[in-house]
């Protein structure tokens, strides 16, 4: 049996390049982990997959009632419920995925200390499984648009770009937070709080024009700003402040790359300290 490959195991220090070849070799496992998370997520629940659409739907009703009716917040064109839902769909994906992936390494301790495979699959698998929920809530959004007779335009072609940005921002944050969570369980307490606050610095509830002009570009530093604006742009045809959206997209990419590198650097000690 001639062995086609050779692996040398030794101590590595400093920053390491990401081993995409190995990730590709193990790609089936990522699919299995996503499939596992999807299968078990709503097991032994009464409503099952309905939870995926109920969460943003109920949030939409509450936000519409409180912010639109009581506080008088208006949308940037479409009916407020549509406006809110188009922002809530990616935001719910982001917040659920970040909180689940940041705990994923710790809750898969046994795997990490007993088997070898690319560790990035654990937080990424948790995120991948939630893409299904995002797809379901987008389906519901189309039903709502039908209900409000709101037209779809060719801008819809942009949706994959912004979905990708959402995945990159979520993955980057999930990778960084899950890696730090291995050493510092503080992450477990910080993440829910940060996510709760995050909705206020992302234009989910209010339109971006509520932010004073010279501050607006700063919102672009938040990668989810671009995602939310982009979802509204491609789905509802809302205004598109490209400088902010472009900055946000760049931030998504930057966070993703940083996440991969930081994770890569910290993963070699996971098994020892988890």
């Amino acid at each position: 049996m001639p062995s086609s490959f050779e692996v040398t195991i030794r101590a590595r220090t400093g920053w390491q390049p990401v081993d995409f070849k190995e990730i590709f070799l193990y790609r089936e496992l990522l699919a299995f982990l996503v499939w596992r998370d999807i299968k078990i997520r709503y097991r032994q629940t009464l409503l099952g997959g309905l939870w995926a659409v109920l969460q943003p739907l109920i949030a939409m009703f509450i936000l519409t009632f409180i912010f639109n009716r009581l506080a008088g917040v208006s949308s940037d064109g479409p009916p407020y419920p549509l406006f809110a839902f188009a922002g809530l769909a990616p935001w719910t994906f982001f917040s659920t995925a970040v909180s689940q992936s940041s705990n994923s390494l710790v809750s898969n301790q046994a795997l990490i200390s007993k088997v070898y495979f690319p560790r990035v699959f654990i937080p990424l698998g948790a995120i991948g499984a939630l893409l299904l929920d995002l797809a379901l809530s987008l389906g519901l959004l189309f039903l709502l648009m039908l209900f409000y007779r709101w037209p779809v335009s060719a801008k819809l072609l942009w949706l994959p770009v912004f979905t990708l940005a959402a995945v990159l921002a979520t993955s980057g944050s999930g990778l960084i937070l899950s890696a730090f969570n291995v050493s510092f369980r503080d992450v477990k307490y910080a993440v829910p709080f940060l996510i709760q606050m995050g909705i206020f610095v992302t234009p989910v509830i209010y339109p971006i024009r509520y932010i004073p002009g010279h501050w607006r570009i700063l919102m672009g530093l938040n990668p989810m700003t671009g995602v939310v604006l982009g979802f509204r742009y491609s789905l509802l045809g809302s205004a598109s402040p490209w400088p902010i959206m472009g900055l946000s997209l760049a931030m998504s990419l930057a966070i993703f790359v940083a996440g991969l590198l930081i994770f890569r650097r910290m993963e070699r000690r996971f098994a020892d300290i988890i």
Partner: peptide, 11 residues
């Protein structure tokens, strides 16, 4: 699963 501190393994 874990890295050595010194030395190496070739597989």
């Amino acid at each position: 699963i874990t890295e050595p501190t010194e030395g190496c393994v070739v597989v």
